[in-house]
Write a protein that binds this DNA or RNA. Structure first.
Lengths: 191, 191
DNA sequence: CGTCTATTTGAATGTACTCAAAAGCGGTGG
DNA sequence: CCACCGCTTTTGAGTACATTCAAATAGACG
């Protein structure tokens, strides 16, 4: 594969020596997705860590009433994966799907464990990645249990300004936990 | 300090050699808390990782209207900390307070970093701890944005059966994101 | 231009909150 | 042992927030 982009992307975030870079690049799979392509579907075990180079993915659940609930968006330089399914080898409840044509770097499960086992730096870097994701998630929980739809929408705008004009209000509504109709009302009242 | 309990607790969960155990024990502070004692208060920087040996802590936010929102309970063998405040040296928005007389093991921030830097095993173990916490949190978010109060209460019962008779419904209501009055209604209808 | 999707609007309904008050329960001191 | 206090839990009425369903309007794209 063309290793250039991988090296470039990762050396912006992680300090790696040449040996570590080589080890990483050998295990990285570059993949191009069309719009509305699935990276993970309900029932499959999530066998990859995914890094978004360009584009945008969403991870969501479909509940028993057929409603969609967005759990996470991942755009440029974000990681996404169903960690529960990945680590416990359980069928996922979730879908991961592209909202745009998207370019990702995938790491297959065995390769992830090889990274951990061969170079300490990966244990550390993935620890830090997940710590940051955890911190963000915690803020979201607090928000969800303590704020109104309007406040959650305002927070979304503040946190994801780069997504605002790229994704539909249907997607945003599904992320903040309201219906599109109600988000429309909220937006009307805000102006 | 009396190192016995620390060693016992940790070797149940982590595989450590003698050198690592010694290193850990030297950096562990055992602390006894009365009921309603604070481990962290809003405005302070969270400078510790906390492991609960016995008892129960809650972490919560007080919003601008004076309402309480429980983010996490930590009982026997659980870790708790405001990771955002810890890693970014920011004043915390949160309180951590004991719900019972509680016995904890604290790791001061510098010591945590020493653990990471001197023994690979700690980078890995804390990675795994936070990964599991992340997975749990993710389930909670999904739940919060897709379920009714009744479903959230049932899930709480299922997930924390050991806490049910130890903490008040006020605390549970604050965790699942409803008022105590409404939780009472829900429980009435359930029977 | 037509089709598909996204967004808005409105009315009726349901879910959860607020406020006030009553009832239950456990511990403590006399 | 009982009376009282503080806290938790319940009850009810009125209100606010958010959903459902149906339909109209607007935009995007081949």
């Amino acid at each position: 594969m063309n290793t250039k982009p991988v090296i470039t992307y990762f050396s912006n975030f992680w300090k790696l020596n040449q040996k570590e870079i080589d080890f990483l690049v050998e295990r990285a799979d570059l993949r191009l997705l069309k719009k509305k392509a699935f990276v993970l579907e309900k029932g499959q075990v999530c066998n990859h860590f995914i890094f978004v180079v360009k584009g945008c993915l969403k991870m969501y659940k479909v509940d028993d009433k057929g409603r969609f609930h967005n759990l996470q968006f991942a755009s440029e330089n974000n990681w996404i994966s169903d960690y529960g399914s990945f680590y416990n080898d359980e069928p996922s409840e979730l879908f991961i799907e592209s909202l745009e044509p998207t370019e990702i770097i995938q790491f297959e499960k065995n390769n992830v464990f090889e990274l951990y086992d061969n170079h300490v730096v990966f244990d550390r870097n993935f620890r830090i990645i997940i710590e940051n994701a955890f911190i963000e998630q915690q803020k979201r929980i607090l928000q969800t249990i303590s704020s109104t739809a309007e406040e959650r929408y305002l927070y979304f705008i503040k946190k994801y300004p780069h997504l605002l004009n790229r994704i539909s209000h249907v997607q945003i509504a599904s992320y903040i936990g309201v219906t599109p109709e109600f988000l429309s009302q909220v937006r009307k009242k805000m102006i």
